[in-house]
Amino acid sequence: MTLDKTALVVDNNNNSTEVNLTGSASDTADMLDMTIGETVGKALLEDAKLNVRHANVFYGDKQAIHDISLDIGKNEVLAMIGPSGCGKSTFLRCLNRMNDTIPICRVEGSFLLDGEDIYDRRQDPVLLRSRVGMVFQKPNPFPKSIYDNVAYGVRLHGLAKNRAELDEIVEKSLRRAGLFNEVKDDLHKPGTGLSGGQQQRLCIARTIAIDPEVILMDEPTSALDPIATALIEELITELSEKYTIAIVTHSMQQAARVSNRTAYFHMGKLVEVNDTDSVFTTPQHPLTENYITGRFG
């Protein structure tokens, strides 16, 4: 499959807005109606890990994603921000076909992982998900021991030859998730007994235990307190050395802290994507500017 880059000329100068931006509060309604037009910024990359072209997602008759094209580079942390219901989580769930579990959901467009079509008929979602892991909004440890939680994927996929190897993988994953020292004496206690932040790190340990290539994170800290959040953010930065990470977040500060690139979604469309610094310092689209300056969101 060849990538049709010419079809996606990113027009930096012409943002087709019809709204003046002297914005008072009463203009908010107008702002939300603003025409979005083509994606602004640098959506496409050379040598990317994931290439998405012309993605459209429908829930029944309702279209949740409108023609989004976006690349995610190797070992980068891509943050996706935007107001609630803007489609960022839906987009994220397309990347490991988690939307398959929703019967009314229909996905169109091309999604390539290392040039391989994710939605190809021959693509096995089981194999895909072992390569593209996911961490969820609410920590969801299985009702098993901490050890069994981390060993879950390893056992499923038969990645450990024996108990010693399994022990080693579990310990390594817990260490990398920064959890080992806290739980090393309680490995056989239930994972559900941990605190929220610990549970989320357990879920991250569980994900990295099967050594995926990409990790998707869907607002991983929204249910956590600030200290637990800081620990997770630190962890994300560490993990980016090895993995490609796409993170959906509600918090612009978090996006600014952890990501290399930031994509701004609005009403199912990708409005702007660029290096994180430029998005937050010199947003090019008025909608992005409105959002990061806190006029709505």
Binding site: D124, V126, L127, S130, R131, H157, G158, L159, I210, D211
Partner: peptide, 15 residues
């Protein structure tokens, strides 16, 4: 190596 290992057992798991 990893993916191949997983792919190897997939047939059985799907059965």
């Amino acid at each position: 190596n990893h993916t191949e290992k997983i792919q190897h057992s997939l047939k059985k798991r799907h059965a």
